[in-house]
Design a protein around this nucleic acid. Structure first.
Lengths: 153, 153
DNA sequence: CTATTCCCGAGTATTTTAGTCAAGAATAGC
DNA sequence: GCTATTCTTGACTAAAATACTCGGGAATAG
């Protein structure tokens, strides 16, 4: 699991789609305009999102992208996984053939840590983010809303 | 909060220091040899770790680095923060002067998400990682040990 | 037909990452 | 004091990743 700006772009775009979309598709040009992400960059991201079956597409005028399923069933981890390929975290390619006693420390450690983060982001759906956004709009104290909604307890 | 290979290097090196160090300092050359991280790269990382008061240094023969305090009081998030400067997550530099209705969606959303991850990594200390490593060495089933030790419940 | 939109691959500028190199300062042990 | 060791610093560089451009195509609504 990596956490970069690309993942942020993808989550933002997907959230835009969740908010502004519905039965009718949303064009990448629209998202590009609203979120100020370059159109061709979005094209690349959505190619991956589509291959990972997070969105469906419709060509031609009035076409665009739709969420492949309900926002409550699309999770942040899935979006990030779709656009940010996993890093190769080992220096022995998982073969365990490291000579020194301390080696492969790296591998197990980081796999577990990023696994934990992955699990965490697997619990947050686009629906959660939308709900949180709604709350932020309507209430005076925005942050606590999210923290209560999302915190693991 | 970013999650890159640099942070992994830093956590690995700090864990090596926690395991192989103690009252007497550990030289970067030793860590470099064990963890197969280039010496000069380690130098750069440890400069940052020292500025962030996570390690102390001793020059001269027999010198090296020591943890600035107990491993149970040094947390993964602190290490990553020290070496991976935070990304600028806003496109309006936090001024909130975005014209379109949907903008700054990015900012709040990502700040909160990465805040959550940060909080999570703030709960895992070097001591936890050492304990977990110990467990992994002595028990047959390694993974479950960590999951129980570290999981949020 | 035509404009719109997705689709795809190749190419490119910028930034980041990972690493090199060289000079210097402190210090332990002789 | 000399010397080897080790940190300290800064500048520089190669390679990779990132963010983006460009150009052409294919589907399709009107």
């Amino acid at each position: 699991m990596k956490l970069t700006t690309r993942g942020r772009y993808a989550v933002t775009a997907m959230l835009d789609l969740a908010i502004n979309g519905g039965p009718q598709p949303v064009s990448l040009a629209d998202i590009s305009g609203r979120q100020e992400i370059s159109l061709s960059y979005l094209e690349q991201l959505f190619a991956k999102l589509r291959r990972n079956e997070l969105v469906t597409s419709a060509r031609g005028p009035g076409g665009g992208y739709r969420l492949a399923r309900s926002g409550t069933d699309i999770f942040v981890a899935q979006i990030i996984d779709a656009v940010d390929e996993a890093v190769d975290v080992t220096n022995c390619q998982g073969k365990g053939n490291c000579h020194h006693g301390e080696t492969c420390l790296t591998h197990d450690l980081w796999e577990d840590l990023s696994g934990q983060i992955h699990d965490f982001l697997s619990q947050i759906s686009l629906g959660d983010l939308m709900e949180r956004r709604q709350r932020q709009r309507t209430t005076a104290r925005p942050v606590e809303g999210l923290l209560q909604t999302l915190s693991l307890g």
